[in-house]
């Protein structure tokens, strides 16, 4: 019986950590997505400096979470997000509306992919 209790306790802890992880990834990806959307709104208004600053903040937020994301996400997924976030900064600096829109779409797609991996949905399980 002791073994069953110990294993159940470890499994309960695992479930707790998994739920915390879903919340963490959900929060992080939502923030980055909304920051990216905001950069596009600012770019459309011609406020390129503010848009570029916000794009940098989004990339920094992603980099700051590196210690935790490396534990729970495949490293290729983390690197992909790094690449698209930095590319988005580049297109904001070059003030190219069309390219900036394309890079924002890439950021959304990569970040959504990471979110989908962790969110509890039937599609994600199967």
């Amino acid at each position: 019986m002791k073994k069953e209790i110990a294993v159940s306790a470890v499994f309960a802890l695992l479930i707790f950590l998994a739920v915390m992880n879903v919340r963490f990834i959900g929060k992080l990806t939502s923030e980055i997505k909304s920051m990216t959307e905001e950069t596009m709104t600012l770019a459309q208004r011609g406020e390129w400096d503010r848009a570029e600053k916000l794009a940098r903040e989004a990339a920094e937020l992603w980099e700051k979470s590196d210690a935790r994301t490396h534990l729970v996400l495949r490293h290729t997924a983390i690197e992909n997000a790094d690449i698209v976030l930095n590319a988005h900064i580049g297109f904001m600096s070059s003030r190219n509306q069309k390219e900036a829109q394309g890079s924002a779409r890439s950021v959304r797609s990569v970040i959504n992919g990471i979110r989908e991996l962790e969110c509890f949905r039937l599609g994600s399980i199967f």
Binding site: V7, S8, L14, R74, H75
Partner: peptide, 20 residues
């Protein structure tokens, strides 16, 4: 490139299933 947790989590889950 795969986090160790990708191995640890299923193994703990399997042990739980087996013990239960």
């Amino acid at each position: 490139g795969t986090p160790l947790l990708y191995g640890v989590v299923p193994i703990i889950t399997l042990i739980f299933c087996e013990v239960m």
